[in-house]
Computed example of a mutant assay.
Amino acid sequence: MNKHLLALGILVCFFSCSSTKEVSKNTPQILRNNNSFLITEVSTDKTYGLSPKNPVEVGGVKDSEGPLNERRFLNALAGPNGEEITYFRSGSCCSIKSDNDPYGFGAVMLDNYRVTWMNSKDTVSIYINMYDSGTLKAPVGFTIKK
């Protein structure tokens, strides 16, 4: 009985953050260099990358480059006035739907990065999906590294 309740609790937690966003179209990413993606625009959607319901889709997990692609995305960003950013991965969270789930459940977890820059008052959470690949943009409040 306890095992069934534990399993049910895990499933509820796993799917409680599930995204309502459509599954990715697997858009190919363009490299600026080996450590950074080419990003050409800033999003006008205030939730893009800043909400687990609308994560940045960097892809790469199929080619064993998921974590590298997450860093490539973050390395392309700058603070609101072009400041150099710093970031760290704070962990995984939030289950979302994905056809690219390597385990066949149809859902994957996002990675959450905390991002800051010089004279910033706080850190900003950016949610990244390394399983699906979409058009990359800088989130609102960020600029693109020159």
Rank of each mutant, 00 (worst) to 15 (best):
S64D: 15
E65I: 01
P67S: 08
L74D: 07
L77T: 11
F105N: 08
P80A: 06
L74Q: 10
G66Q: 07
E70K: 06
L68N: 12
I85G: 09
I96N: 12
S95M: 05
E84Y: 01
D63R: 15
R72T: 08
P67R: 05
K97G: 13
N69C: 03
A76M: 04
S92F: 08
P102F: 12
V108N: 09
A78T: 06
A76D: 08
G91N: 08
C93P: 01
P102C: 04
E65V: 01
D101T: 02
S64P: 02
P102N: 08
D99E: 10
S98K: 14
E83P: 04
K62W: 05
S95H: 04
N75S: 07
S95V: 00
G79S: 10
C93G: 12
F88L: 07
G79P: 11
N75F: 02
C94P: 03
A78P: 12
G106Q: 05
P80M: 01
C94V: 03
N75G: 09
I85S: 13
L68A: 12
G79Y: 08
V108R: 14
R89T: 03
N75R: 09
A78D: 11
G104I: 04
P102T: 03
F88D: 07
F88M: 05
R89D: 09
S95D: 02
D101K: 10
C93H: 03
G106C: 10
N69A: 05
Y103M: 06
F88T: 07
T86H: 12
